[in-house]
């Protein structure tokens, strides 16, 4: 067996793998993925209101209003399922995503 050649190949292989390693998760990404069942993957539809690319403060204020307001729809319940800090992380993350420009 040609060890030096295989070693070089193995190390090159490892270097390539290093380049393709998963990046560390961005804060809010996992929490925001829980919106996708109803708003589409990365908040970009298909589904209810598009979330991707909306302003963080609009998203956060809307969800706080739903969380602390009366029950007028299913989203008023879902907003109660997160702490205020979690709603902020979700809003910040979704605001960084490219949307389709839909409402």
């Amino acid at each position: 067996m040609d060890i030096p050649r295989l070693s070089r190949a193995a190390l090159a292989c490892a270097a390539l793998l290093t380049a393709a390693l998963p990046a560390s998760a961005e804060p809010g990404r996992l929490l925001a993925s829980q919106c996708a069942q109803c708003h589409g993957t990365n908040g970009a539809g298909p589904g209810f209101d598009e979330l991707a690319g909306k302003s963080s403060s609009d998203l956060f204020n809307d969800m706080i209003e739903m969380k602390y307001g009366s029950i007028e729809g299913i989203m008023d319940r879902q907003a109660r399922g997160y702490t205020d800090d979690q709603l902020q992380l979700i809003s910040d993350y979704l605001s960084t995503l490219p949307g389709n420009g839909d409402d």
Partner: peptide, 19 residues
């Protein structure tokens, strides 16, 4: 699983839901 490959501990700031 992704975190286990990058050597990070699992996230504890997590939520699940059903609707």
């Amino acid at each position: 699983i992704v975190r286990s490959f990058t050597g990070e501990p699992p996230d504890i700031n997590i939520a699940t839901s059903s609707a």
